[in-house]
Design a protein around this nucleic acid. Structure first.
Lengths: 211, 211
DNA sequence: CAATTCATGTAAACAGCTTTTACATGAAGC
DNA sequence: GCTTCATGTAAAAGCTGTTTACATGAATTG
């Protein structure tokens, strides 16, 4: 049969870069039709190879998604770290930038975000996935620590708790309203404003200076 | 072929209550294997009917999930309203009860919660689903209004914004840590405590009395 | 350079899911 | 009692997922 309908750089019998091609296909398919609407067979077709070929590179469909999620977390960690920018110019401004970067990632990279948070992966299956996720969370954790360090010691809440609050709020907003699906509930304000205001109120509740 | 392996109350050729049986099967399958691991055919098998039978009651698999989601939102709205209890004994306590009820629903009814928030339904397809979801949100909205009413008028933030903050925080925590999957990141505290503390800080940030 | 090895891809096959179609059943209403 | 109609069955066609034996050709090695 002719499997080279979608050939582009196909150099003959061997694809040459099938692994990457499959990941790209997965991103497109997930973005277009959600994590559920992604099939191994369609990814293979999109890469111009036979249905069995992907099994040379991934144990199964979940392994591919896990790899996509891992890469997603790496990009995510990078974006967050760049936005945080070591707490410059001020911890509060930097945290707001971090929040904006969180939502921007969810909006601009819906396929990654879906694979990372909504693909119901066999959980903590892949240790590299866990590590990548940890690195992303570490940025939030660091931000929380920097922020509470501006408080007198007796008044400091646990940094872990603060980072979990920020993360949960950002993830909740991204989940419920964050992607351009227009599938979600209509909002009286942009998700970015909603998060910014939420963080502002939260920090005021901790008595952290926000001006 | 023999489709009556799982017969229980099967009264002959006609099932008698297939629609309900399919919804029950869907809840069990979603709880066991996630929204993706639910198939029309398996629900049919579980109800003891042929693979084509479900199409007499639901247009397709998504229509069944949408119905499950709609029922989920109805139970959810009930639970939240009961917890809120018209703001008694105090608005703050009632809001904490509401938050606890939110997380309890996510934990105790993971199948409903999954269908409601993570099934990537064709969005605002079903108007009854939207209405049910609106009724649930209305409870949160009412709670927010009651809480800000304790503030002097000049100091009141928009109730819609406050309710969205609470909702997002609760949903974020439920999403990330809330279900017994043990699949999620380990926490230094129970999700319920995390949400309670988050709400407390947030209300303090609004300068709403929390004692 | 030539032979061999090995990663990568194909073809074919089987099983399960989805959806449609024609047909069967039996409960409800006239 | 007869007819009607909702509900279920059987069968079929076209998907997908997965495994198997086999084919290809690029890299390795003597």
């Amino acid at each position: 049969m002719n499997w080279s309908k979608h050939h582009r750089k196909r150099r003959g019998y061997h694809h040459g870069n099938l692994r990457e091609a499959l990941i790209e296909a997965a991103l497109e398919l997930i973005a277009a039709k959600g994590a559920a609407g992604f099939t191994f067979a369609e990814a293979a077709r999109s890469a111009g190879v036979s249905p069995g070929a992907p099994y040379r590179h991934f144990r199964d469909r979940d392994a591919l998604i896990a790899d996509v999620a891992r890469r997603g977390f790496e990009h995510f960690a990078e974006d967050l770290a760049r936005a945080w920018n070591d707490g410059q110019p001020t911890p509060h401004t930097a945290l707001q930038n971090l929040g904006a970067a969180y939502l921007a990632f969810a909006k601009d990279e819906p396929a990654y975000y879906t694979a990372m948070f909504e693909s119901q992966l066999p959980a903590r299956a892949d240790p590299e996935l866990v590590q990548a996720s940890d690195r992303a969370f570490a940025v939030l954790r660091q931000a929380a620590e920097t922020l509470i360090a501006t408080l007198p010691p007796r008044q400091r809440p646990p940094a872990m708790m603060v980072s979990l609050h920020i993360w949960s709020l950002a993830h909740g907003i991204a989940s419920l309203f964050g992607r351009g699906d227009e599938a979600r509930r209509a909002l009286p304000m942009a998700p970015e404003e909603l998060l910014e205001a939420g963080i502002l109120v939260y920090l005021q509740g901790l008595d952290i200076a926000t001006d």
